[in-house]
Design a protein around this nucleic acid. Structure first.
Length: 422
RNA sequence: GGAGGGCUCGCAUAGCGGCCGAGUGCACCGGUCUUGAAAACCGGCAGGUGAAAGCCUCGUGGGUUCAAAUCCCACGCCCUCCGCCA
């Protein structure tokens, strides 16, 4: 949610932001219009209520005929108050519904455009030359089979398309990745968290996942809960309706959880392998900080993501995601794309978003310092999303026979330097 | 799933339908005193909105009433007991 005062004072900036995202700019005008009526309705109600409060007190003090007369008036006034209150509540609900439709303001530095209009910030590492190594790289599905690490066929049999089993070294690799991620995050000062993955509507709505993103969310209607697509949701909502003391900031959590995604509207996209699946595990960084420090914090999150990729010895590039491809909560987003040899391209493996005060306003999370209580900023970033990292590791570190070299950083967690064929 | 009990300002509690947005204790912050500290004493101490007056918030939502923290209903959450269970 954007500060309504800011919208009143800078409607053009908000319109421009909506336009940059390819979203409806008329919401801004609807909101401004209803904000007027909202404030009028509040004033009307409050005036009547103040009158009623005064009158009520005098009723209590009065006796006899005088009281009867006052009661007459009071009754009438009570009806008016009730009517004014109903009207106010209606309008406020409408205004709120409209305000919730607005996406976050874009960072002026974010590139404008659609999915394809990202800007490449840097390349790190060099894609391996398999021709020079004298063999054709196998894709992760084939490698996964040879190593006994990934079983997509049985996954499909048991759970449908986009499902899989991690077995043997595949399962061990997940544990190693998670352990490495959590231990490095803990060293960096993150508090490790295992959050709930089943959350209520307030948490989902507050983090901004019930808007355009709703179709990708599993909803358990019978119990009115949602399966989260990322631990960003429970981590952000963890401090819902709280006021954090400024000394605790930046407050950083590393959440490990399973993530569930319906992947609606992705028919035919990445159908092979485990690039795009309904369920996967992920270690997510989440940070609460002062708004004026959010940009810096965003860079730090990106750096931690790069550190992880570097440790995995995988070539990658960093992109500045274009406005039209940002989530509704993000004002800027950097993705890291790892080189996937068999696709001859870079594919997203991690992503970090600066949500400024947008989520915090929806979730009612603030911080308090010596001059008062203010909205806080929230940021999130992937440390490691397991399946895509497994894809990157297997494909980039494969040998001619299908065995795979284990990155040094993971060797202590796996007790081996090489995955052999089964 | 069944039976009870409870949800008030960080914590613990008080609260008669009007004098309660709300008392007390602890914690916390500032001050006096002290070489320093403790104790004692004095003051402050929920949030939102508003320029202010005011208005709103005693789990949430409804209802009764001129007036609700206080009465009624529904829901949520917590606790205890029973059943079931990883």
């Amino acid at each position: 949610m954007i500060d309504i005062k800011f919208i009143r004072e800078n409607p053009d900036a908000v319109r421009a932001s909506q336009k940059g995202r390819g979203e409806d700019t008329s919401i801004v005008d609807q909101l401004l219009a209803i904000d007027e009526t909202r404030r009028t309705a509040i004033t009307e109600f409050e005036t009547l209520r103040a009158e009623q409060n005064v009158l009520s007190k005098s009723v209590g003090a009065a006796k006899g005929d005088e009281k009867t007369a006052l009661l007459e008036n009071a009754k009438d006034l009570a009806n008016k108050v009730k009517a004014a209150d109903t009207k106010r509540a209606d309008i406020e609900a409408q205004a709120n519904a409209i305000a919730m439709q607005l996406s976050n303001l874009l960072d002026p530095d974010a590139p404008i455009g659609g999915e394809a209009d990202f800007v490449v910030i840097e390349h790190v590492g060099t894609p391996r030359d398999f021709a020079k190594d004298g063999f054709e790289p196998k894709d992760h599905v084939e490698l996964g089979k040879l190593l006994g690490a990934i079983d997509t066929e049985r996954g499909a049999k048991v759970a449908g398309s986009r499902s899989y089993y991690l077995t043997g070294v595949g399962a061990l690799l997940e544990f190693a990745l998670v352990n490495y991620a959590i231990s490095s995050a803990t060293k960096a000062g993150f508090i490790p968290v295992i959050p709930p993955v089943l959350v209520n509507p307030a948490a989902m709505e507050g983090t901004g996942f019930l808007g355009q993103a709703a179709e990708n969310v599993y909803h358990l209607e019978r119990d009115e809960v949602y399966l989260v697509g990322t631990s960003e949701v429970p981590l952000a909502a963890m401090h819902m309706d709280e006021i954090l003391p400024v000394e605790k900031l930046p407050l950083r959590y590393a959440g490990y959880s399973t993530c569930f995604r319906r992947e609606a509207g992705t028919y035919g996209k990445d159908t092979r392998g485990i690039i795009r699946v309904h369920q996967f595990d992920k270690v997510e960084m989440f940070s609460f900080c002062k708004p004026e420090e959010a940009k810096e914090e965003h860079k730090r999150l990106l750096q931690w993501e790069k550190d992880f990729l570097n440790a995995m010895e995988i070539p990658y590039r960093v992109i500045d995601v274009a406005s039209g491809d940002l989530g509704s909560s993000a004002n800027r987003k950097f993705d890291i794309e790892a080189w996937i040899p068999t696709q001859d391209t870079y594919r997203e493996v991690t992503s970090t978003s600066n949500c400024t005060e947008f989520q915090a306003r929806r979730l009612n999370i603030r911080y308090k310092d010596s001059d008062g209580t203010k909205a806080i900023a929230t940021l999130n970033g992937t440390l490691v999303a397991i399946p895509r990292m497994i894809v990157a590791i297997l494909e980039n570190h494969q040998n001619a026979d299908g065995s795979v070299n284990v990155p040094k950083a993971l060797q202590p967690f796996l007790g081996t330097s090489r995955f052999e064929l089964v």
